[in-house]
Design a protein around this nucleic acid. Structure first.
Lengths: 192, 192
DNA sequence: CCTACCGATCGGTAGG
DNA sequence: CCTACCGATCGGTAGG
């Protein structure tokens, strides 16, 4: 596997380490060792450990929003839009397994200013999903569920994608998104 | 608020710090400062930082399993058992907000032997839920869903309880468990 | 990209 | 429960 550039190599290695050991428990020396250079040389590519985290987190945040916008820009029903948005969310995770894992678990280590910016992006993304569910209720497509709770459930289920990949299940993106959609849309309880 | 014992005070303070900053980023000096003693004095109560983490994680693990066993030891339908088990799960989280948050996010820092023991307990708990869902399908109460995926969804939704508490929603345990159950059992899509 | 090195902080121990 | 302190390691800089 050819490594495109050293900078990318550093970043992908950092993603792996941040995920497995956590941001705080990962040292720049260990990262350097894994990359195959001395620790101070890392600073020719990234100004700080914090900068690495920021790059990873905001890249994923942007991917989520871009994918969502594309999913919704259709003339389909709210139900279909939601299904597409869910699949898109899973696809972003699946195409960035290590990075999205860092995005979910390590964003708390972003420093003050960037942390605030990050939270805003996340809130906007959540709100977009809530609007979609609310529109679906208004149009009569969905049951009159608790919107915030529903979106919470959708995200918590979708964000377990990483664990599903790791488990022995061997599900691909479509199977995960469709399996979750099936349960969420149709419900568990058998209707007689 | 009276602090029962110093040891309990240390533990509850550690839970708060481990949750907000993470296990690796929390120092014993900071913990000591927060408690109001010097760092070396901590070692009269806990042999190590690791020991603190173990106490927290395994206590919660035991509570989950005990609560589940009690929920299932009834002569109700599988559907009712599952609802009760879900409520019990939320109640354990709600009664141990800080500790359960550490349980979910910081267990990765358990050292080798304890890590293996922890994973076994967690796997057994998951399997118990899977059996319940499988029984419900066999008895015709549930739709023929993907069992593992369904249990994954249940846990990922229930484990967001902590976030739901923090959000402005002000839902209590019953409302969270019932809200999630309602969506999960009945589904989002309106049946005509 | 390296060697050499800084000040700060870490988990934990000795000894009382 | 404290003071004093250990060796190790941290993120990052200087200077080339």
């Amino acid at each position: 596997m050819a490594i495109a550039t050293r900078k990318e190599h550093i970043r992908s290695t950092a993603q792996k380490l941040f995920r497995t050991k956590g941001f705080a428990a990962t040292s720049m020396r260990e990262l350097a060792r894994e990359v195959g250079i001395e620790a101070p040389s890392l600073y020719n590519h990234y100004t700080s450990k914090q900068q690495l985290l920021q790059d990873i987190c905001f890249d994923i945040a942007a991917q989520f929003q871009t994918t969502f916008d594309a999913s919704v820009a259709t003339e389909q029903s709210n139900s279909q839009k939601l299904r597409r948005a869910m699949l898109g969310h899973v696809q972003v995770i699946a195409s960035n397994i290590e990075a999205s894992s860092v995005f979910f678990d390590e964003w708390v280590f972003l420093e003050a200013g960037e942390l605030a910016r990050f939270k805003k992006l996340r809130a906007a993304y959540q709100q977009a999903f809530r609007n979609l569910v609310a529109d679906g209720i208004a149009s009569g497509e969905f049951n009159a569920v608790n919107v915030k709770l529903t979106v919470f459930m959708i995200f918590s289920a979708l964000n377990a994608t990483y664990d599903l990949y790791k488990s022995g299940e061997r599900l691909n993106e479509e199977e995960i998104a469709e399996g979750i959609s099936a349960i969420l849309f149709n419900g568990l309880e058998r209707t007689k």
